[in-house]
Design a protein around this nucleic acid. Structure first.
Length: 603
RNA sequence: UGGGGAUUGGUGUAACGGUAGCACGACUGACUCUGGAUCAGUUAGUAAAGGUUCAAAUCCUUUAUCCCCAGCCA
């Protein structure tokens, strides 16, 4: 039994300990049959992991830069990068930037940062490189002209509305009066379109496939639309832009992608993927003899199911709307399911990879209990996160028999799961803070914590016993506890062997650092946002954030943004960039499991 | 409606004609200076109906349910 090795964007070289999923089986079968040939020495960059003669495996992650990446994308990135890594192959990051109306440089930059953070290094030993669909516009245009010459594409003068009206129905074919336009005329028009002679949407280039196909994607799909719009990469050079179906297979082909992995909704686009490449290859030959030249590479498209964590929303469109409507503070709001939001919340790349590894790769669309995501994080952080003490909702405790003005330093273990993490000193004094919910004046039966007359341990410090309760006379609220301590229990053990049932975390009032701590709850209160209500906004959780003024042990005063700690008995907390000098800000990533909450909740 | 997919415990997933298994959760208990962690145990499933076969989650037929497509989005 091997302990789980750290995961980053897909598992490592070693064969996974779980059964292979269907895509791994396809890749392995392809490798066995040498379907994609072998790496040639000239394809291998210095320091790269490919081995000459080994089977080619080349994957890619092709986001459109129209928003930020979210946890769903992490699945695809892990799958694609993991496949390349596990088989000595290459991985490309490619921006599918074919629609300038939605795309922005900001998104390109953010996506690059997120993919890198996730560990899918397109420049490392498995890196195939960074690419943009827009870099291929010229080549694509040449291919389009070729299809027109071959009688497989034409310029259509129908407006979008007319195309839609003429699309036909199941059993009723679509129509276009321009289908049989002479190639010479289409060639002239596509040139004019490119040269800006025609207004937006006045014409389009269409593939001549099958107007009667039951698969509507094949009813002469549009290849180019006219769009007089600046592009983040090509500026104003182009005013016609290729459609996804036309562009995507060519991008894969040009890059030598072997396995073009996408999600289920593209299944009925697969015939198109093949049609376009086959159409280009018609008349082409392996040795480039003949009028059309050398055949182009023909990758394989494979579809897998997205997964959705419960209580989260994963549509780019709606995430964008929440950002625009200020429902959240931005794309990286710690409540967002975006990669940048999760990172700020305190999630690690390896926990995200472990989560998706756990969820598996299939063709079944499913909701995955968000608790599994939290568990993936807890499992990792339990091993790695340094422990600290912090009191979220302070209740003052005065140790009556501890001398005034005195203080001392006690040894605290940094991580009981990792002896190498060592110990630290924690100051103790006469006045302390404990967690408000660790005291009850009239405790129910199974409440082990502090109550009048009860004795508990202060972690790494002393046993204390509550002697009296001070209340605000007006409100009746408990404002302070008086207690006595047993000096013989220093460090937390009683020489006489007596036991206590609870150990509480605490901070010294004199030494504690004040901090803002943000407690997050799920953004949506419905398990499947929008599904029952029809509108995801109706399912927003109004209490998804609570800010408390906490007191932290002094060592936390110097925490740097991005450092993750376990606050003992509370959960994992990530230092946020909003910190001001001397007053840290922490985000609660996830709580610890809380058996007591469950017991108490039953009453 | 036409086309394309899917259906195994509460959840996710495996079994590729031959013992329905794993993980998470839930529940018990042990242990514990975190009501955490850890350890031991319990729990519960092949969408339905027919058929083929010595043998069916798996093959065949029919049915049911769910998802996707019918953008000049990707």
């Amino acid at each position: 039994m091997s302990s789980p090795t750290p995961h980053h964007a897909g598992s490592g070289e070693a064969a996974p300990s779980r059964p292979r999923h269907f895509i791994e089986e396809i890749v392995e079968a392809d490798n066995a049959s040498k379907k994609w040939g072998a790496w040639r020495p000239e394809e291998i960059k210095p320091g790269a992991a490919q081995v000459p003669g080994a089977p080619r495996v080349h994957t890619r992650f092709p986001p459109e830069p129209n928003g930020y990446l979210h946890i769903g994308h992490a699945k695809s990135i892990g799958l694609n990068y993991g496949l390349a890594r596990a088989h000595g192959g290459k991985f490309n990051l490619r921006f599918d930037d074919t629609n300038p109306t939605k795309e922005e440089q900001e998104y390109v930059d953010a996506i690059k940062a997120d993919v890198k953070w996730l560990g899918a290094d397109w420049e490392g030993p498995h890196g195939g490189g960074l690419f943009f669909a827009s870099d291929y516009f010229e080549q694509m245009f040449a291919f389009a002209e070729e299809l027109i010459r071959k009688g497989k594409a034409y310029v259509c003068d129908l407006s979008p509305e007319e195309v839609s009206a003429r699309r036909g129905k199941p059993g009723v074919p679509a129509t276009s009066p321009f289908r049989d336009r002479p190639a010479e005329e289409s060639l002239r028009l596509i040139r004019e379109m490119r040269d800006g002679k025609h207004p937006d949407a006045s014409r389009s280039v269409r593939a001549k496939i099958d107007l009667a196909s039951p698969n509507f994607n094949l009813r002469d799909p549009v290849m180019y639309r006219i769009l007089h719009e600046a592009h983040h990469n090509t500026g104003t050079k182009w005013c016609i832009y290729p459609m996804y179906d036309w562009a995507h297979g060519l991008e894969d082909s040009l890059e030598g992608i072997t396995h073009s992995i996408c999600t289920l909704e593209f299944e009925d686009h697969r015939p198109l993927y093949h049609w376009f490449i086959d159409a280009i290859n018609e008349g082409r030959t392996e040795d480039s003899s003949g009028p059309w030249g050398k055949r182009i590479h023909h990758p394989q498209q494979i579809e897998f199911a997205k997964g959705r964590p419960t209580y989260t929303l994963l549509s780019k469109r709606n995430l964008l709307k929440m950002v625009q409507d200020r429902v959240v503070s931005g794309w990286d709001d710690p409540r967002m399911p975006t990669i940048s939001g999760l990172r700020r919340r305190g999630y690690t790349a390896s926990a995200l990879a472990a989560f998706w590894e756990d969820a598996g790769v299939t063709k079944v669309e499913s909701w995955i209990d968000v608790g599994r995501l939290e568990n993936a994080l807890r499992t990792e952080l339990n091993r790695t996160a340094p422990r600290r003490m912090a009191v979220l909702r302070p209740l003052k405790v005065t140790i009556e028999n501890y001398p005034e003005g005195q203080s001392e330093e006690l040894d605290a273990v940094n991580n009981p799961e990792d002896p190498a993490a060592g110990t630290r000193k924690v100051p103790f004094g006469r006045t302390l803070y404990i967690e408000r919910e660790d005291f009850m004046e009239n405790p129910p039966k199974k409440f082990f914590r502090l109550s009048p007359g009860a004795e508990v341990r202060l972690r790494y410090a002393y046993f204390i016993r509550c002697t009296s309760v001070v209340k605000d006379p007006a409100s009746g609220e408990v404002t302070e506890l008086r207690a006595t301590y047993d000096p013989a229990t220093r460090g937390g053990d009683a020489p006489d062997g007596r036991k206590v049932k609870a150990t509480l975390h605490w901070v010294s009032a004199e030494h504690a650092v004040r901090a803002e701590v943000r407690l997050f709850d799920r953004l949506f209160k419905a398990e499947r946002p929008g599904e029952a209500s029809g509108n995801y906004m109706d399912d927003l959780n109004p209490d998804s954030i609570e800010v408390v003024a906490a007191r932290l042990e002094p060592s936390l005063g110097s925490a740097e943004a991005g450092q993750i700690f376990q606050f003992e008995r509370l959960g994992y907390f990530n230092a946020d960039r909003d910190a001001a000098p001397g007053t840290p800000v922490f985000n609660r990533t996830v709580t610890l499991k809380d058996t007591w909450a469950k017991v108490a909740g039953k009453d």
